[in-house]
Design a protein around this nucleic acid. Structure first.
Length: 857
RNA sequence: GCGAAAGUGGCGGAAUUGGCAGACGCACCAGACUUAGGAUCUGGCGGAGCAAUCCAUGGGGGUUCGAGUCCCCCCUUUCGCACCA
């Protein structure tokens, strides 16, 4: 038994041995300075939240990135492969409540444990560049950026309806609300509350964020589409409908001296204007078909109408409540359309027609102007509404072909105007342009681009986040914390309670300060920043993580950016990746960097599934990486996570599969250790002797396949399969190898290359066997093998022969056989001859190197 | 409802450009070796059939000498969006 053990692949012995050696060599995974002269390659995986445990999704994510990093090292690149911790956030506070451990301690303990897990997994990270976002040397730069953005009017405060998660007792960004529930608490309904909040003006970059998506051709189309939808650009027209009471003043209104306020953000300024209702429409060409104006129940004018009409008021309030509930439930689209007439009328500026003003529950206050013109003939929703309330339906667009019968609502823009006065006969697009011109000329409207994207609310009423570096002074109002007073440090000692409001407001030593401007008593801002701030720029900090004078040295960033390859879960397609893009553009405009986009290529990996569901504690189907490492070794766990599915697809975790990979690694270990002595004992003079052989052919085919995959397709599952095939062939040649019938140079090339091919996927075994083969130095610095096409080429090919498209037989021909020779070989075949005997060969298709097909009648 | 991706053996999956469907692995079956072992090696393994053969990539049609792959219709699953005017 003890004897046996020596002959067995034993990851439990190999892996700790290499962990020690690697820990002793800080240069192994270290990025080099620009002066090294090598081409740079920045490979990045999304940094984890230090929850305490790595999960299989992490193992998969980092196995993909680490394989790529190792491959690039072997290709001679200067690789930056950093790691850090997204260390602020709510779970630390929850844990503090539960275990009475301070968030900082809990977080740092988790980090230490997870770092150990990374080490056990053999991940090749450059720990010298490690960042931890909850430490002041990182978050001070969040504060620094906040101030720079404040100075450029990219930060502002406003009272707004916010999404409030009662579980988190804090505000959530729109992006953090999933189906009406908190993104962290799937079962907790989000409530709407009114609070004064800090916002980043991401909408200032909406157009550029949209436009630049076209440049990101290294990103999955799916992610780009999701971002496009999220930004939701929509081109249209704002038009004023005049309140009937104001009609007599119309000439006055269109007078040049009249100043109309510019429409502000969503929800706009319509309240200040009591003579008109501004609507937003993408189909101004249909305006002659408008038969009512619909207001959102929260619209400023509605309050005015209801002031004198208690009955209306009750109904409007019901609608607001209903919308609120629907919004909280996330099924805004599901509520039945419902409305009430206000008894007031508005006048269509294009045709002077008088239309009723309604309040309707399907009009959103926070999109466009919160008011629409209703054109039932050409809009599904308006149509449904008009049918329900028996409002008139006026068709104003007709297909160009006048003979076509029209089914209303006719929503196509392919048509011409009818019943539209002077605009009759124009196409929809022509009419839109003309009508916009008229609106501008007569000052009752203008072209308008509306975005669905909202400004980024960053205030959080939590303790464990970056303090917002602002001071409230009674005399001077809002005052920035001066740069030299940064960082505003989170107080270490704090009692975490479940009370609402900002925990920092209950820490007098933090709260009370002096005004930097007047020196008088003042109070600090007690909100902290959304943790998405931390992850919006962390990858810049990696390049210069110890810099205490600036967030990073622009010259160093210029060398490393953009990131060549970013790898992470598709669940961050919108939130993290849009904020990161925004932050990059802001930093560019601050003159800190030159790149417009942070990430050149993005890879969205699939989820890890077990028993048909995503691994999660609540489903009870979690597999612990530590268990896998203990049972099968890190190499097997990592390699299985690459082998079981292509990286972009979901992966079905089957433990038997890990065992299979482990058996494969054992086989590699046995074969290599068995014949390593041949390699070790070779004389240098023998090294160059190379001759074609079946084994070398398979080897060079394998090298070619894997090299190609690393360059683009990333089907690492088939890469592993290819290595398995190669090893199967070596195993089949076991007898010849044992008998010394395989020339030593072939043995050497075979096993050296095998180990090199394995190195990105199974780093421990590769290191061990590299040493076993008598090599010195790290396998990571050994050049990636090059496929020799001469050796890879088959000299004979099997060509399938079909008759009428059905496979009949296979003929062997020389690899360079031309059409004629293949034809002859096919016709000479027994089976073929008996099948075509007495029949007429109508046609013969020969694809050299591929197949023959005889068409026979 | 709109959009995208996917559907292939008992299972995970392969087939990169329209050219031998099922590589590789798991599970299973048989054999070898053996002081039984969850080790290793050899062979088998889509379905039907003794066989020659036939059938088979969600279903139905089509294009083609040839279709898992391209086109049309339908079904299912997953994901994203969903009163955005």
């Amino acid at each position: 038994m003890a004897e046996d053990k020596e002959l067995r692949y034993d990851p439990a012995a190999i892996e700790p041995k290499w962990q020690q050696r690697w820990a002793a060599d800080p240069t192994l995974y270290a990025a080099e300075p620009a002066a090294c002269g090598k081409p740079k390659y920045y490979v990045l995986e999304m940094l984890p939240y230090p929850s305490g445990q790595l999960h299989m999704g992490h193992v998969r994510n980092y196995s993909i990135g680490d394989a790529l990093a190792r491959h690039m090292w072997m290709r001679g690149y200067n690789v930056l492969h950093p790691m850090g911790w997204d260390a602020f956030g709510l779970p630390a506070e929850n844990a503090a409540l539960k275990n009475n451990t301070p968030p900082r301690e809990w977080t740092l303990n988790n980090i230490a444990g997870m770092k150990r897990q990374f080490e056990r997994l053999g991940m090749g990270f450059d720990w010298a560049t490690e960042i931890t976002t909850c430490l002041p040397d990182y978050y001070r730069w969040n504060q620094w950026f906040f101030l720079r953005m404040y100075e450029r009017d990219l930060v502002y405060r406003k009272k707004s309806k916010v999404n409030w998660c009662p579980e988190c007792a804090t505000v959530l960004a729109n992006e953090q609300v999933v189906d009406g529930c908190c993104w962290r608490h799937e079962d907790t309904k989000v409530e709407q509350r009114d609070l004064v909040q800090w916002f980043f003006r991401i909408t200032a970059y909406a157009q550029e964020l949209l436009d630049d998506l076209d440049k990101l051709n290294g990103w999955p189309e799916k992610v780009r589409t999701m971002q496009r939808n999220w930004i939701g650009r929509s081109e249209g027209t704002e038009v004023d409908f005049f309140l009937e009471e104001a009609k007599k003043k119309r000439s006055e209104i269109s007078h040049p001296s009249e100043q109309r306020p510019l429409a502000g953000g969503p929800g706009g300024d319509q309240g200040s204007e009591k003579t008109r209702i501004r609507v937003f429409t993408t189909r101004v060409d249909t305006i002659f078909g408008a038969t009512s104006v619909q207001l959102a129940p929260q619209h400023a004018l509605v309050a005015e109408f209801t002031a004198a009409n208690p009955e209306l008021k009750v109904q409007v309030e019901e609608m607001i409540e209903q919308q609120k509930k629907a919004r909280e439930a996330g099924d805004l689209g599901a509520i039945e359309k419902h409305g009430v007439p206000t008894g007031r009328f508005a006048v269509n500026p294009y045709n002077g027609e008088r239309v009723p003003i309604w309040v309707a529950n399907y009009i959103l206050a926070d999109y466009g102007t919160g008011a629409i013109m209703s054109v039932p003939a050409h809009d599904e929703r308006d149509f449904e509404f008009a049918i329900k309330y028996d409002l008139p339906i006026v068709q104003v667009i007709h297909p160009e072909d006048k003979t076509l019968a029209v089914v209303l609502p006719f929503v196509s823009e392919e048509g011409v105007l009818v019943n539209s006065g002077e605009f009759d006969g124009l196409s929809c697009t022509q009419a839109q342009a003309k009508m916009q011109e008229l609106a501008v000329a007569q000052r009752f409207g203008e072209p308008k681009v509306t975005f669905r994207l909202k400004d980024w609310g960053v205030s959080r009423q939590r303790y464990w986040g970056t303090p917002i570096p602002m001071i409230h002074c009674e005399r001077d109002g809002l005052v920035q914390v001066p740069d030299e007073q940064l960082p505003v440090v989170l107080p270490a000692e704090i009692e975490i309670t479940q009370q609402g409001g900002s925990p920092l407001s209950r820490v007098p030593e933090f709260l009370n300060t002096t005004c930097p401007r007047c020196g008088g008593p003042a109070k600090r801002e007690t909100d902290t920043m959304d943790t998405f701030v931390d992850s919006s720029w962390y990858f810049y900090r990696y390049t210069d993580s110890k810099n205490d004078r600036e967030p990073f040295d622009p010259a160093v960033v210029k060398y490393w950016f953009p990131i060549d390859q970013y790898i992470g879960g598709v669940e961050h397609a919108i939130l993290h990746l849009i904020y990161s893009r925004f932050w990059t553009k802001v930093m560019r405009d601050l003159g800190l960097i030159e790149n417009d986009e942070p990430v050149r290529r993005l890879f969205a990996q699939g989820m890890v599934i077990k028993d048909g569901a995503k691994m999660s504690k609540s489903k009870g189907n979690v597999v612990s990486p530590d268990d896998m490492v203990a049972r099968y070794g890190a190499d097997a766990a990592r390699m299985y996570s690459l082998f079981a599915a292509p990286p972009d697809r979901d992966l079905d975790w089957q433990e038997d599969g890990v065992a299979g990979v482990s058996r494969f690694l054992a086989r590699v270990w046995r074969l290599t250790t068995k014949y390593a002595h041949i390699v070790r004992e070779m004389q240098p003079s023998d090294f160059d002797e190379r001759r074609p052989s079946a084994l070398l052919r398979k080897l060079h085919q394998t090298i070619a396949k894997i090299t190609l995959d690393f360059e683009g397709r990333w089907h690492f599952n088939t890469c592993v399969a290819a290595i398995m095939e190669l090893v199967n062939e070596i195993q089949a040649a076991d007898a010849q190898l044992a008998a010394g019938e395989v020339p030593a140079p072939v043995v050497r090339e075979l096993f050296r290359s095998l180990v090199l091919l394995l190195a990105p996927f199974a780093p421990y075994l590769a290191a061990e066997l590299w040493e076993e083969l008598g090599e010195e130095g790290s396998v990571l610095r050994a050049p990636w093998p090059k496929s020799d096409p001469g050796l890879a080429r088959e000299d004979e090919l099997e060509i399938p022969v079909q008759i009428n498209g059905k496979l009949v037989t296979v003929v062997r021909v020389p690899a360079d056989a031309d059409t004629k020779a293949i034809e002859a070989a096919a016709l000479a075949d027994e089976k073929v001859r008996s099948r075509i005997a007495g029949k007429n060969v109508v046609k013969m298709i020969v694809v050299p190197g591929k197949l023959v097909n005889l068409v026979v009648r």
